[in-house]
């Protein structure tokens, strides 16, 4: 995935079955952001792989005061890249039995 300066990673192991997965997002390179990154911590949230849209979550983060509106695009893209990777891997691996 392209390095946007905003990092998104799995916050839990992906068994390949659950639709909602916990992700963790943090800013590795604040200079890449237009607005100030308020918190400096990692933000953990759950994301529904089937129903939800990365850009909508990014907008919720802006509305929750984590990011400036002008950074919604870069945050949305970072989430989108990670979600795409999760889905790509799932297509290629047989889910482990619970």
């Amino acid at each position: 995935a392209e390095d946007t300066g905003v990092r998104v990673e799995l916050a839990e192991e992906d068994d390949g079955l659950k639709t909602s997965i916990a992700l963790k997002l943090w800013v590795e390179d604040p200079r890449r952001l237009k607005g100030k990154y308020r918190d400096g911590g990692a933000i953990e949230f759950t994301f529904d792989l089937e129903k939800e849209v990365p850009e909508a979550v990014a907008q919720e983060m802006v509305e929750s005061g984590f990011f400036h509106e002008s950074d919604a695009k870069i945050v949305g893209k970072s989430i989108r890249d990670r979600v795409a990777l999760i889905k790509w891997r799932r297509e290629r691996t047989v889910p482990r039995a619970p």
Partner: peptide, 27 residues
């Protein structure tokens, strides 16, 4: 350290915790 939480009006919970140390990019 206690993780801070922000619940968005749409109901999503955002839990803020320290950035994983090992993942910080070495400047």
């Amino acid at each position: 350290s206690s993780a801070a939480q922000v619940v968005h009006s749409a109901g999503r919970r955002f839990i803020v915790s320290p950035v994983p140390e090992s993942r910080l990019r070495e400047q």
